[in-house]
Write a protein that binds this DNA or RNA. Structure first.
Lengths: 138, 138
DNA sequence: ACAAGAACATACCTTTTGGTAAGCTCCTTT
DNA sequence: AAAGGAGCTTACCAAAAGGTATGTTCTTGT
């Protein structure tokens, strides 16, 4: 793989093997608010308060924190429009778009399957209850 | 959408709008160890200690906890082979396989792009440092 | 009989995460 | 001049996540 990079690309085995930069990156994206912020921006750039209002339950602290981390990762770009007053908007970088093209299937899958999975929660609960009540067995 | 379901499928907007079962499911999968466990099992079923050894840094407590949650979600199946001693192995359910087919592109993307993103961390750091130094304190 | 490994569960404690609330600056509107 | 919104940051605190260490049961190996 003759690219102008520092070394060979990481593999999925590296992710599993131990702590590595990939784990850190994964934690940024798969953080409580990371996926949601990224998903919200997938439709197009939004301003701070639009994100805050659009993502139910997020606090301003968590929003700005998440935005800062994802900016550092180069997935989101912060743009200050030189108007008065300056308006700040956030959008996906090309790298962020690339990520979202991988992630949107996953998000859609969650929306699609949530219902049948929550149904399974109840069923599993009663199974568990039965097993526990019967004790002894297993 | 004439299925025997309780109601219409959730949408991505629901995920963004507020707390909902989809958020919970998302948190299970996108938890610190969730993606890694699922990824490890994508190659095929593994036993408890194989998972523990294969996923660097995970404790037995976290492994069994993660396994239990993902079983409840119907993404992983726990199988006790009736040998002596009984061997317990974990594998993906069809639902879990379906999920992983959405997720593997994302995992591969992380492995692919980690390097260039970590490089950006350093660049961003010096930018930030410069900005902070300019403003005297903090 | 004894040590040891698999597959957990549990108690205890530390670290991390995240929410609340307040404050701050810059600007516009009234 | 006062009020208010945008876009943050900080301090403080509570809750949740997670690690360590230990206990348990079953079974095989010696």
């Amino acid at each position: 793989m003759p690219q102008g990079s520092t070394g060979p690309a990481a593999t999925i085995s590296d992710l599993l093997a131990g702590d590595c930069p990939g784990r850190t990156l994964l934690s940024h994206i798969a953080s409580r608010w990371g996926v949601l912020v990224l998903t919200a921006l997938h439709q197009g750039p939004l301003r701070f308060h639009q994100l805050r209002d659009g993502i139910g339950g997020i606090s301003e602290k968590m929003l700005s924190q998440t935005l800062r981390v994802l900016c550092r990762d180069g997935l989101i770009r912060r743009e200050v429009e030189p108007t008065t007053p300056p308006r700040v908007s956030y959008g996906l970088t090309p790298l962020g778009e690339e990520l979202m093209s991988e992630l949107q299937g996953f998000i859609a899958w969650i929306a699609l399957r949530t219902e049948e999975i929550t149904a399974a929660w109840d069923r599993h609960d009663s199974t568990t209850r039965a097993r526990l009540q019967g004790s002894v067995d297993l």
